[in-house]
């Protein structure tokens, strides 16, 4: 069977299973899962960057960009259709990333991380100063609709949309990561010089991953802005970006589905520890992160998605046997 068709088939099956799960779980859990998808989408973009050896600490910028553009469109133009809002948010995130990419795609490592973070903090600073769109308090986003229908108050409609988006994004990323273009990114992580000698451009590889990550972040921002009903400059704050990096690292880059799981688990751990230990929840969250890093150093995704053949690890093991 065609591997691309197989991937999309699996994604469709997964989406159906999760929509069915959505019919039985309590309302608060639906909302938490919806929000986890929003974060997971951003983390998925980070996974794409991580595969190419890039770590962005500023995905909040594209997340915030998507949320603001779609939120303002809903407020000012009265467009509340989720399909339109999600498309607009995704394009907004991708466009901002495309504008930024010529500048940042030339950098690597800590310089790349710091530069992306600086840009997101510039956006944070500017947004807090614009009183017309609420300044640091942000603004509320009206209730979403789908093809003219109001989404149910239970949150199931939005959850179903989130699941479909997540499945679609995961499938697209899987296909992209396994394609020639996607594999060059992984090769660039191992040896940039060799990639250039082979005739590929590391710059355009980085740019592509960066714009993809921007688009996914815009999608996630739109979804969360609508789900929360409120958008504020905190979306672009560095701690928001940091949270997404955590989710991506916890998930690892072996799997395209792990990030959604780790986003959900992070949300649940934070929420429950926040409720039962309101004065020490940060410590519990920290212990949880440490445990995952110590026992699953290659991310939660490494539990089910074994990387095809990892030469670096094999070459270390071989002399021992």
């Amino acid at each position: 069977m065609n591997p691309i068709l197989r991937t999309f088939g699996l994604a469709a099956l997964g989406a159906l299973v999760f929509i069915a799960i959505g019919l039985v779980v309590p309302a608060w859990f639906l909302f938490t899962m919806t929000k986890a998808v929003g974060f997971g989408l951003v983390a998925l973009g980070l996974v794409g960057l991580l595969r190419g050896g890039l770590l962005s600490f500023g995905q909040g910028l594209y997340y915030c960009g998507g949320a603001y553009v779609s939120g303002l469109m809903a407020n000012w133009a009265g467009v509340t259709d989720m399909i339109v809002l999600l498309s607009v948010g995704c394009i907004a995130g991708g466009l901002i990333a495309a504008l930024v990419s010529p500048l940042v795609a030339r950098y690597r490592g800590i310089f790349f991380a710091m530069l992306t973070m600086a840009l997101s903090m510039v956006a944070y600073g500017v947004l807090t100063k614009i009183a017309a769109i609420g300044g640091s308090d942000g603004f509320n986003v009206p209730k979403p609709t789908l093809l003219g229908y109001h989404l149910a108050e239970t949150g199931f409609g939005l959850y179903a949309i989130a699941v479909v988006i997540a499945a679609l994004a995961a499938a697209v990323c899987r296909v992209h990561f396994d394609s020639g273009l996607g594999l060059i990114a992984s090769a660039a992580r191992e040896n940039e010089l060799r990639i250039e000698y082979l005739g590929a451009s590391v710059f355009s590889v980085s740019t592509r991953s960066f714009i993809l990550a921007g688009g996914l972040a815009g999608l996630g921002g739109t979804l969360n802005g609508v789900a929360l009903g409120h958008v504020d400059p905190f979306f672009s704050y560095w701690t928001t970006s940091g949270e997404m990096v955590f989710i991506a690292i916890l998930g690892g880059y072996a799997s395209v589905t792990a990030v959604f799981g780790t986003a959900l688990v992070t949300e649940l751990v934070r929420s429950f520890s926040g409720q039962y230990f309101p004065e020490s929840w940060q410590m519990l969250l920290g212990i949880f992160l440490l445990l995952v890093i110590v026992f699953l150093p290659r991310g939660v995704g490494s539990m089910w998605a074994k990387p095809a053949k990892n030469h670096a690890i094999r070459s270390i093991k071989e002399p021992a046997t």
Binding site: W28, F31, K35, L228, S271, Q275
Partner: peptide, 17 residues
């Protein structure tokens, strides 16, 4: 944690707790 977290925690208080 900002308004994002608070909306979620509000829902948890009402719907879960």
């Amino acid at each position: 944690g900002g308004a994002t977290v608070q909306v979620q925690e509000y829902r948890n208080l009402v719907q879960r707790e």
